[in-house]
Nucleic acid binder design. Sequence first.
DNA 1: TTTCAGTATAAGTACGAACATAAGGGACGG
DNA 2: CCGTCCCTTATGTTCGTACTTATACTGAAA
Lengths: 252, 252
Amino acid sequence: MNGQDAELVMTFEDGTPLYLQVAQLLQRLIDGGTYPVGTLLPPESDLAQQLSVSRHTIRQAIGQLRQRGVLSARKGVGTRVEAPEDDWRSRFSANSRGGLFDFARSTELHFKHRQMTEVRGNLAADMGVRPGRKFLHLSGPRYYSGDKNPFCVNEVFLEPRLKEVVENIDILRVALFTLVEASTGERVKEIQQEIRAVHLDEVQAGYLGRNQGDLGMRLSRRYLGSGSRLLEYAVQYYPGDTFAYHTTLSST
Amino acid sequence: MNGQDAELVMTFEDGTPLYLQVAQLLQRLIDGGTYPVGTLLPPESDLAQQLSVSRHTIRQAIGQLRQRGVLSARKGVGTRVEAPEDDWRSRFSANSRGGLFDFARSTELHFKHRQMTEVRGNLAADMGVRPGRKFLHLSGPRYYSGDKNPFCVNEVFLEPRLKEVVENIDILRVALFTLVEASTGERVKEIQQEIRAVHLDEVQAGYLGRNQGDLGMRLSRRYLGSGSRLLEYAVQYYPGDTFAYHTTLSST
DNA sequence: TTTCAGTATAAGTACGAACATAAGGGACGG
DNA sequence: CCGTCCCTTATGTTCGTACTTATACTGAAA
């Protein structure tokens, strides 16, 4: 007879869908320790009753958290808490082995080109914006501080209104999105990252000391603000023979 | 009044859920050119009526194909075909244990080869074990449930003592490490994942419908038990032209 | 003590219905 | 000719209900 969980109340009834509100509530309860990692959530039907929503809505909410890897479900058993809120701000630098992703202090991005571009075709599709939209396009090699040869080639696309953020910057030693956040006051809510294999083009190969057509890895990131608004889009190219992307999934 | 689309009939009523059958049907119709890339699918309500299923089931089916990147939907407009025909664009997102679990359940791994091998050289180094150690080596293609063509080639290395875990299994529909956990009673504490770009060898290319030397992605995972003991090592090869590895880092 | 069958549980699947909301198009007036 | 408003369309959200199936537990039989 667990009569202790009386704090299950939905708050703020704004325009966000109910199932997202439920998902956020569950996330808060998980982070807050009400549902510790490794334990089972109450059954869907119980949650539905306690929150006065339909089981279908609960399932949608749980589906969200399952997609993010926070929950996992098994028929006949229940829904298990797999991970606390994934704290990407720490993982961002933590999943780098050899400091490949340590943007903050150990690398330098040298902007060699900057221009306004209309994005279209594949690029527009990758960015998730309408073809024809204008962006400020910056590009250049990235060095380990003090190194002579770059280990990575960068491309960055910024909204035109953020022009003055990078106006006077030729060498960047911090994560660009922190500057964007500081300038706009808008917080980056989500980063969507994509990794794929590519052939290096002539320019990239030149920077990286490889030959055109050699194996490479392309790592792109979409920085989204509130309302899935694209604030920044960045692409990095690495030589395929030396680069590997490492992640550790621990179950605590 | 388009009275031409009379070929919308569901076949084989086996144990697979209805919404997956619908998803496969839609995929076939897309590949077959009935719904060309770039065009809009008929409205959900029309599809539901034509197939004599509920709109809810149609939405589940469409949801599957949206997850794979085959379809995209916009409110008030419709559902658009995004992927080129006969390109089953594999999108794989897994940044958690639960993600791997769900991934394995919507796919099938067919074991084609199984043998004892002594690992050495690069492989031993990647696995993090002494060269010369013996492992049970299984390999084969992986399919989306119901698909004809594999989207991935798998290799699995297991400790010899876990032989009976896969003894009678030819088609695997769950995450292998859960079987290992169940058999040994030892919980997987950590999964170390590595992604790199490769050229496909002849066998891999054959399975994936590509040519030898084509661009590919290699995704390896080390499943560690307590005390950093290697329980399982798995490698997956994907075609580089259609495969992308996605991660979402959200801050809410 | 072990094994097996039955039962309870909880997620999965599938139906139906209704309303909300975004997009696009067309009518209408300026 | 152009912008505004409204209506239609199609997906999104939310409720309700019922049944299926995998899993675990329990209790009886061997």
